[in-house]
Amino acid sequence: MISRTERTLTYAILGLFTVISLTPVVGILSSAFGERSSLDTGFSLPSGLNWGNFSEAWTRGHFGSYLTNSLLVAAAVVTVTTVLATLAAYGLGAMRFPGSELLFYLFVLGLTLPQEAVLVPLYFDLRHWELTDTYWGLILPQTAQSLAFGVFWMRTYFRNSPRAVVEAARIDGASSWTVLWRVLLPMGRPALSTMVVIVFMWTWNEFLLALVMVSDEAHRTVPLGLAFFQGQHSSDTALLAAASVLIALPVVLVYVLLQRRFIEGMLTGATKE
């Protein structure tokens, strides 16, 4: 039997960790809704909700246009990754051809590769092709990086999908394309949506690539905007906090709604077959 003391102790420890997890988040929220002038960085509860910091960040911090940029880049990366990764994973997972194993390992390589391994020449290449300071300079490299996860993830789905269904369709004369489009994809909604939320989160939060590829303000994404904003107004805690909330909110909302998908996807990245 588990003693009463142990139960109480367990809940106490759990409570402590919860408080530690939430403290920075609550800190940001409270200064985002707090008074502009207060230099206090933390925890005096604000007198009512003060939305002024958000409109200030939106207009003076230009976060409105940064959010538009982020949205555009994320939408493009997610769409292209989903289409290309699904096709490639289908080819690698449901069919066999010479070299398919090797190709799969090439994609898996990208899962552990640090950005620093490709970033330096990537900058000079993109500058040569005049793609720096464009949306393409952000979309194309991030899609390539997301493909590693996408191909790995969707291939696992195609490998584990019931053979009997596929074979029945095949025997009925369906082409490989029909099997994918009419049979496997309708069944694969959960796997697809996990990939979509993970790739969306990575793209939305991406900072280093944007820092290197974008120098003009017109193409800044939100994480980059926050970093520059911090450089210029590092003492303006309330405005920084409001901007942080604007950045984190879309991902956190999706996370709260689709928590299982997030956790499943992020923990499977490193599992072996």
Binding site: S21, L22, I28, F207, V252, Y255
Partner: peptide, 9 residues
């Protein structure tokens, strides 16, 4: 939750 927040934030 910390896992889904942007590192910048």
């Amino acid at each position: 939750l910390p896992q889904v927040l942007a590192m910048v934030v």
